[in-house]
Design a protein around this nucleic acid. Structure first.
Lengths: 328, 328
DNA sequence: TTGTAAGCGTTATCAT
DNA sequence: ATGATAACGCTTACAA
């Protein structure tokens, strides 16, 4: 920058002003400075800039597991919209390990990051308390916490369940199974309740013994299917709280000679790409991933500008994706 | 840091020395300083540190597409081992767009990043030239470039093809199809050549008309299958250069009433998790993702320390994963 | 409109 | 072993 100033015959503050076009600069000098910048191939040092202006132009994204496809959607869209705003994304995988999580958050704090997005932070995680002591904005994505006064972006999980219940019962199914996520997670309970209410619209009951608790994973679909085979009676429709689980169920039914959707309708949740790469393709419920992450980033930026948030808790809408794995 | 110094009754340089334990410090003062650090809950500012020491303790990872699972493996393992070294990972998705790519690299340069890993950089990408003008270490991962003097970590793609060819021909298959990746990519050509040579071990020929060019994607598997159906004769084994493509083929064969592996053996490449989540599960070839990325990070760190690299080009070994989609 | 200079929070060099 | 101080590269009052 000194070089640029020297070459252009101006002071470094003028150079700075040209770069950030803060206050007006004579057209002539601006031209000279810009040429000098090009000549010495000048690149501002973002560390120095960040040090001075207390903003590293970075957003941190915390996910519990990179390999689950739902998280890769968030990673992708987060990177995309962060980049579009001229910032960079620092990614951290916590594997649900509070220690790793704390270490990562700590490094973000030390980097004076502009904001942090947590996707599916654990309920018992105490990093939020740490963060509240700093002035770093953060948003919790996809998993509502018990506490209400934290900026949050979530899917309407009750609605998702309702849509699934309504759809399956409208199809004429009477014996319906729900394979949930871990029931100590609020979102699983909300989906389940919505599902119940959706079924009820068509006078269908969901008895306790047809609720199976899973963990969103593939294996838990296999296990659930095995459990069902040992029942005296098979269901005619199944909704799983995750596509992965639904696919596990579907494969295990195929493996045992059942046909989907002729023998049983199967429906998932999340609309991961794998849902389309099946035969039959999987009916599911889509989450507006991009919209959710953009809303979250927006909330971060608002907080940084000290603008008030319109809402502390933004709730977005799921939508039904009908494919081949469900039928009458 | 000033506060810490004041509280401990020492100078800030002593505080710095305690933190980095550079040169010896009296046991007594160290204790006092450490206590003061705890008391004021002091966190070093990484931007300032980076500015001074010209190292932001960050590694950049450039991928062309986050949603492809092979890349998510690299992202995951990169984050993991970078974090283990006390650094952070900045992730950039270029979507094969040279403009985006250049913008991202530029921001990394301005951040004085410690090193950059490119996974599957485009051959025509000119960012490497830009980087060569800086002193930022970089490594090309997974796609060898024409140029030889660039630090590279690759899979032995010829070997991967050879393994596939040898395995399928040993199974007794005679009519074998290969669905390649884009043939203007070196790695596809190497895999194809290896496959040819592997088949030849058992006197099997791979005629030109049984080589179909794909693009590693799911749809290209569907398309290839359709193309095969229009042949007068179906193959008895197929190897695709990507699991996604193999799965596309498999689904399309199922959809048309064929049984895998009874009617046709299908084999993929990459060992993505979806390969296990099929019925039948997919035989494939594994890449040592974690080892590859760790090697790459290692090369970055070596370059930063100005240690010479043992090898400019590290080649790692693929391995056969036999599952259910192949048989005699 | 432009320049001077202080300061951001560190590390590193030099004395002491 | 410790302290004072310059320097890293930038932004921003304040002055001119």
């Amino acid at each position: 920058m000194k070089d640029v100033a020297k070459l252009a015959g101006v002071s470094i503050s003028t150079v700075s002003r040209v770069i950030n076009n803060t206050i007006p600069v004579e057209e002539e000098t601006r031209r000279k400075v810009e040429e000098a910048i090009r000549k010495v191939n000048f690149k501002p040092n973002l560390l120095a800039r960040g040090l001075r202006s207390k903003s590293g132009h970075m957003i941190g994204l915390v996910v519990p597991e990179i390999l689950h496809q739902t998280f890769t959607y968030w990673i992708k869209y987060a990177e995309e919209s962060v980049a579009a705003k001229g910032m960079n994304l620092i990614l951290g995988n916590t594997q649900n390990d509070p220690d790793l999580e704390e270490r990562f958050i700590d490094s973000l704090i030390q980097r004076h990051i502009d904001g942090i997005i947590f996707s599916r932070v654990s309920d018992k995680s105490h990093v939020l308390h740490i963060l509240e002591k700093t002035d770093i904005p953060f948003v919790v994505l996809d998993r509502a916490l018990g506490v209400e006064d934290v900026p949050t972006v979530v899917l309407d999980n009750y609605k998702a369940g309702f849509i699934a219940g309504e759809y399956l019962s409208q199809l004429g199914h009477r014996k319906v199974v729900c394979i949930t996520g871990p029931l100590d997670i609020g979102l699983s309970r909300e989906r389940l309740q919505g599902f119940r209410d959706g079924l009820k619209e068509n006078e269908i009951d969901l008895p306790e013994e047809w609720i199976i608790e899973g963990d969103f994973g593939y294996q838990s679909g296999i296990d659930a299917a095995q459990q069902l085979f040992s029942h005296r009676e098979l269901p005619d429709a199944i909704w799983a709280h995750s596509d992965l689980t639904a696919i596990g169920v579907m494969n295990q039914f195929s493996r045992n000679g059942y046909k989907v959707p002729e023998d049983v309708s199967i429906m998932g949740m999340d609309n991961i790409s794998m849902a389309e790469m099946k035969y039959p393709t999987l009916t599911t419920i889509d989450q507006p991933y991009r919209e959710m992450i953009e809303k979250a980033i927006d909330m971060i930026i608002r907080q940084r500008k000290r603008e008030p948030l319109e809402k502390m808790r933004v709730v977005l809408e799921p939508s039904l994706i009908v494919r081949e794995s469900t039928g009458e």
